[in-house]
Amino acid sequence: MKFFIALTTLLISILFFVAPGAAAVTQDHELDVFLQQLQAASEKTSSYTTQFSQEKHLAMLARPVLFSGQLSLVRPDKLRWQFLNPIPSTLIFNGDKGIRCDAEGESASFTLASDPVMKIVSEQLWSWLGGDYQKLAAQYQLDKEDKATLVVSFKSEQPIADFLSRVRIRFDEENLQPIMIEIDEKGGDFTRIIFTESRLNETLADTLFNKCELDD
């Protein structure tokens, strides 16, 4: 009888305390494996160009706003984010420097060290699209959702937590490149960016990252 009670206690303990831990271990393992796969895929991808559409739901605006454009990036530090519709504008990051251009074609150069807003933007863009997902895991809380979605959560002491609650990055199951980013802002605003027609490892001209206006 005593043996039966002891065995039951042991089984209950395993059920209540060890099983959830085991489940967590399994999840961590899955995340690690997924991150390794992402890392391996991004290491094979030196450049990336894609069309995108951006859907913003802001409490300040009466209705959702749709923008579309083109993204070009060369890892590790060149990125061009260009809105084409409805109002064209371009944002370029090239190393520690950058250029901003408005619809009238007026450009303004900046350095990340001297422009704190652009530094935040650059850090976030590179953490989502840069391909160094091990680094992302080291910086933020990461979880895996579905088959190929990473959820990035921010700790309250991190400066970015002043603006963002959560970021979801969904990857293409085949080439493991981002196909959708959903940004939950603090206060309930929401942005969804969908990438389409991705082309990997194409040679991209340096001019893409040096000036806003492109020669035809």
Partner: peptide, 18 residues
């Protein structure tokens, strides 16, 4: 303001614009 809000910089600058 409209363009800025819809750009990537709009996220950190939203409160300031308000």
């Amino acid at each position: 303001n409209f363009i800025l809000l819809n750009s990537l910089a709009g996220i950190p600058l939203k409160k300031q614009l308000q």
